[in-house]
């Protein structure tokens, strides 16, 4: 995975892991890869991964079993909230981008509906 070099890396690692969880690649109660493995996979410093994991621990998304590693929380409500906040983020970006193209908020729904309909027609 490629990092943007102008945002603190630990934040990007958090984002990356949130995404993995929201996409179902990491499920509730599952053990996440070791710090070193993550560091290697992402080509980052072990310290940086630890910092990200610590933050996620304090938010409750992860929990640590002593001597075993880090696990995704089994609190499904929290996971749903996390997923929702990721979806909200995406939507916010989408809305912002559309505004830049001059599409007002009131036109958004119809624009999206039209697009989805066209898309559907093409596939049939």
């Amino acid at each position: 995975m490629e990092f943007k070099d102008n945002i603190p890396i630990y934040l990007q690692i958090e984002q990356y892991l949130y995404r993995q969880i929201a996409l179902g690649k990491l499920t509730a109660g599952e053990k996440i890869p070791s710090v070193r493995k993550l560091a290697l996979e992402l080509t980052v410093n072990v310290n940086t991964v630890q910092r990200a994991l610590q933050q996620m621990n304090s938010q409750g998304i992860l929990y640590t079993k002593r001597g075993e590693g880090n696990f995704v929380t089994e609190d499904t409500q929290l996971l749903a909230e996390t997923k929702q906040s990721l979806i909200n983020n995406e939507l916010e970006q989408f809305v912002q981008n559309m505004e830049r193209f001059g599409i007002k908020k009131v036109e958004l729904v119809s624009t999206l509906e039209n697009y989805l309909k066209d898309e559907g027609d093409q596939h049939e």
Binding site: K4, D5, N6, I7, P8
Partner: peptide, 10 residues
């Protein structure tokens, strides 16, 4: 490094 990135600079 994070202080530098915090200012949105690479």
């Amino acid at each position: 490094a994070d202080d530098i990135r915090q200012t949105h600079k690479s």
